[in-house]
Design a protein around this nucleic acid. Structure first.
Length: 895
DNA sequence: ATTATGACTTGGACGTACTTAC
DNA sequence: GTAAGTACGTCCAAGTCATAAT
């Protein structure tokens, strides 16, 4: 019962009028909750499910899971555009270039958008209805909510600050070097200084130091690690570090003492006269900013019109198509805008929501035995369904590089053996032959592939239908998407890098493992598995999770079910994250001068804090929490080992370590002498596996940072560095030109950020082939070019064209025509070469991560508005939904 | 002061849907 | 149309950091 009625839940205030579809909601204006004043984001989206038709890892094809894709009928795309009030800021559109003032929201009526008109067929009425609602709902204008927050503290005054200089690294390599680790490739050039209006300070802007990155890897392609893997593109696991297992040693702690107390900022306190080399002290940089403080203000009127689409089950196909088209088209006009104001989170401290309604989680289907017998010493073995399930999980991983790892096999064997029992026929893994199961799995996969689109669609719809109720939650009267409502299926643990637990059985999760969190007045979700029940029901509004269970691999950890990124709750905290990073801009100069001064401090703890902070600032390193022995051995700043940093006289430091996800960080940078000397001191008398910063840990470091700026922690530097780099590069490098060129500028900036953050991806297995293919094509074109030139010469002399290689006769062309062809061919060649370079360049760089997590979307949106680039050119559907709160930013916004 | 717990963000791999090239 | 290539979305592991418990 409860399931379905999400929308009309009793507890939902009546004002919550959802329409029948239940898709739109207005926000419940709760009294006390301050939340209400703001506008919520619209949710629009249809996201479809993903789909997994492929057999699940355990080899099953779950019927449940099959139908996945949501009928995307919903115009998701369409709706995006549709929803937007066009006028508002269309980002950039030519037609609308509105200066600062954004348009205000208009009601549909006034501004019918073409899109709407076209789309009529489906449910225009409903749509209108919903839009109306939404307009109403979303329109509230919010003024800046941030005023209340401490974060926004900067406001008005801040006009002066020169821009902070991010860490700058200069490097000279060209961008195209790909083989080099990301970090090394880029040059962080100084982003700084430039714009300041203040001439007085101008001199200071130079980069603090230039770090030079060099590439050390050979031409090979592995910047990452080297390892021969049978499998194509997987990222090799690195083993180099394992040589010196780090020993955790007790650290001395006294640093802490000073650290603890003052939570208050201290801009002042920090200020220091500068030591030698840096110029930071200067008043903070000043950058122009308009109302940037929160650029959003003005625009508040925009409405989000997007409506939630209902799942439209009918005719998805045509509809889909249409939607797509529309979307595209709208791209040009970019009418995506929405305003959303997020509320100040401050308020009641802990409270995250007032009412929360949802339907719980969905479980993977039970295991369906296939009965295929594996062989043991050449003979078929009968397994119970449980044993078979686990054997299948293993069989199916034959093609992965985990199969090369003894650790994986051993862990698997230990867990599987428990299921087999001591006296089972199967006494060791070596004599097991899983081929029959593997083959069965491959054929299942093939079958699936062979299904007609029609069949796939049906399955997808079926799945959709089953999952629909779980996809949404109603938070304070607003319908929001749930991020991960599917309980993780059982499988073999796939840890990254040299994870000690890889291969262990991740057992099936049952309702009795799950704790549900829901509003007090909301109906308790029905347990989807008959006869079983939830472990516990809570009504905790100080947290945002809807459900959780203990991680079967590490029971101390939890797996949570949260709202999707497009939700207001997430949007709110995202915005706060960026505001905090922006605040750092005002403090960075003083922070830099303070740590610079401490590079030579006699107090070792202070000195270590200074150097660590410097590295985090310059290199955007992660904090580096301590890890347990049962996790992969990776490090971050505070956990760097002596062996991870090599000094290269006179003043360079070469970093080489495995960071998060066992991704190698390799970078050589030039540092100031005091830093270089300090590192030498920290390494002296220690073994390779000892902690470089033996007096530090993340809590001491963060405690110290908090004294410098309220809420400051190590990760803020990463956000700050990434966003300011983007802002700076965009503003420096955007030239007049067409949209395509501007988008390239954006991608280039995005790439630099990815390099700074060391966001890598494995090289696609077909990369090499793709490159050679391109080369061949270029060669062909080059040959054509040559021939054209010959013909041109001949034509000028009145001779007929030469014979083409295949002997055919060519048309007689005038010299002019030939010249034109030549220039066209040249252009083609150049374009291909550029494309190739870009491709080669980006082969190991992952652009997505920074876009999703580090780049303040307002920078992008404002830039799009200023340069008339449709936002859809840089943000895809999910990003648009996730960042709906940033869409109405003022075009003059600067980070 | 340290460690343990808890909650939430960040990250790369993967599979598939969608596009583009031929 | 079909194969190749790319974009997108999901999955779930692995970080960060605050706070509670010792």
């Amino acid at each position: 019962m409860m399931a379905v009625e999400t929308s009309d839940k009793p507890n939902v205030p009546h004002e919550f009028d959802d329409d029948e579809d239940g898709l739109i909601f207005k926000r419940y204006t709760s009294k006390k909750n301050q939340l209400h004043s703001e506008v919520r984001k619209s949710s629009s989206h249809s996201h479809d499910g993903q789909n997994s038709n492929a057999p699940s890892s355990n080899g099953q094809t779950s019927s449940l899971q099959k139908a996945n894709t949501a009928p995307s009928a919903k115009p998701s795309a369409g709706k995006l555009s549709a929803g937007v009030s066009k006028a508002s800021n269309s980002l950039a559109n030519s037609s609308v270039k509105q200066p600062v003032a954004n348009s205000k929201s208009l009601s549909l009526g006034e501004n019918p958008k073409p899109y709407l008109e076209q789309k009529k067929s489906v449910d225009v009425k409903e749509e209108l209805k919903s839009i109306q609602h939404s307009a109403k709902d979303y329109c509230e204008d919010s003024e800046d909510d941030e005023d209340n927050k401490p974060l926004s503290y900067r406001l008005a005054n801040s006009n002066h600050n020169k821009k902070a200089t991010p860490a700058v690294v200069t490097k000279a390599s060209e961008d195209s070097d790909d083989d080099v680790p990301l970090a090394k490739k880029m040059n962080r050039s100084s982003l700084l200084g430039t714009t300041s209006c203040n001439h007085d300070n101008s001199d200071q802007k130079k980069p603090i130091l230039k770090i030079q990155k060099e590439r050390q890897n050979g031409p090979g392609m592995n910047n990452k690690q080297d390892r021969p893997s049978p499998l194509p593109a997987k990222r090799p696991l690195d083993s180099s570090n394992s040589l010196h297992p780090s020993v955790k040693k007790p650290k001395v702690s006294d640093a802490a003492a000073s650290v603890n107390k003052k939570p208050v900022p201290v801009k002042h306190e920090v200020k220091v006269e500068d030591g030698d080399d840096d110029d930071d002290n200067i008043p903070i940089s000043q950058r122009l900013k308009k109302p940037s403080v929160s650029g959003d203000k003005s625009s508040s009127t925009k409405k989000v019109l997007s409506k939630v689409n209902k799942v439209n089950k009918s005719g998805s196909k045509p509809f889909k198509k249409q939607a797509k088209k529309t979307f595209k088209k709208s791209g040009n006009d970019s009418e995506y805008s929405k305003s959303t104001k997020l509320l100040p989170s401050s308020g009641d401290g802990q409270k995250k929501w007032t009412t929360l309604v949802h339907n719980g989680v969905i479980f993977p289907p039970p295991y369906q035995p296939h009965g295929v017998k594996m062989l043991y010493k050449g003979k078929p073995v009968v397994l119970t369904p449980n044993q078979e399930e686990v054997a299948t999980m293993y069989a199916v991983m034959r093609d992965t590089e985990y199969m090369q790892k003894d650790r994986f096999k051993e862990n698997f064997w230990n867990d599987w053996r428990k299921l087999l029992g001591r006296n089972h026929v199967i006494q060791n893994l070596k004599d097991c032959d899983f081929t029959p199961i593997y083959d069965w799995y491959q054929s299942e996969k093939e079958k699936k592939k062979q299904m007609t689109t029609e069949e796939k669609k049906t399955l997808k719809e079926e799945k959709m239908k089953q999952e629909e109720i779980y996809m949404w939650a109603i938070v304070d009267g607003v319908k929001e998407k749930v991020g991960n409502f599917r309980v993780e299926p059982p499988g073999l643990f796939r840890g990254r890098g040299e994870h000690p637990k890889m291969g262990k059985l991740k057992k099936r999760i049952h309702p009795s493992d799950i704790t549900i969190n829901i509003g007090k007045d909301a109906p308790i979700p029905e347990c989807p598995i008959p006869g079983e029940k939830w472990k516990e029901i809570r009504h905790d509004n100080t947290v945002t999770w809807l459900a959780f269970w203990n991680d079967p691999i590490n029971p101390k950890l939890f797996k949570y079910v949260f709202l999707a990124a497009s939700s207001a709750l997430k949007g709110q905290s995202d915005k706060e994250k960026y505001e905090k990073a922006r605040m750092l801009k005002d403090y960075i100069a003083n922070i830099r001068s303070a740590y610079t001064k401490n590079f030579t401090s006699k107090d070792i703890t202070k000195q270590q804090i200074a150097v660590a902070t410097y590295l985090i600032d310059k290199l955007a390193l992660r904090a580096g929490n301590e890890k347990d022995d049962d996790e992969a051995d990776t490090v971050g700043c505070c956990t760097l080992k002596v062996e991870n940093v090599t000094r290269e006289p006179p003043n360079k430091l070469k970093f080489n370590f495995l960071g998060k996800d066992s991704i190698r960080y390799e970078n050589t940078v030039e540092v100031e002498l005091p830093v270089y000397n300090a590192i030498f001191k920290f390494q002296k008398d220690k073994g390779p596996g000892d902690d470089l910063f033996d007096m530090l840990d993340t809590s001491k470091l963060n405690a110290h940072l908090k004294e410098l700026m309220p809420g400051l922690t190590a990760k803020v530097f990463r956000t700050f560095n990434a966003s300011i780099t983007l802002d700076d590069m965009l503003n420096k490098e955007t030239k007049d030109g067409d949209v395509v060129e501007k988008v390239l500028v954006y991608q280039h900036a995005n790439k630099q950020v990815a390099i700074i953050c060391n966001h890598q991806r494995s090289v696609s297995k077909s990369h090499g082939a793709q490159m050679s293919k391109l080369n061949e094509k270029i060669d062909e074109l080059q040959a054509v070019l040559k021939e054209l030139k010959t013909d041109l010469d001949r034509a000028r002399k009145g001779k007929p064209p030469s014979k083409s290689s295949d002997g055919k006769r060519k048309k007689n062309l005038t010299p002019e025509a030939l010249e034109k062809k030549i220039s066209q061919t040249n252009a083609k060649i150049e374009k291909m070469q550029r494309d190739m370079k870009t491709k080669e360049d980006l082969k190991t760089v992952a652009l997505g991560t920074s876009k999703i997590n580090y780049l303040d979307p307002r920078i992008t949106v404002a830039w799009c508005k200023r340069h008339e680039v449709p936002i859809e050119k840089v943000f895809n559907k999910s990003l648009l939904a996730k960042f709906c709160w940033a869409m109405d930013v003022d075009p003059d916004f600067r980070f």
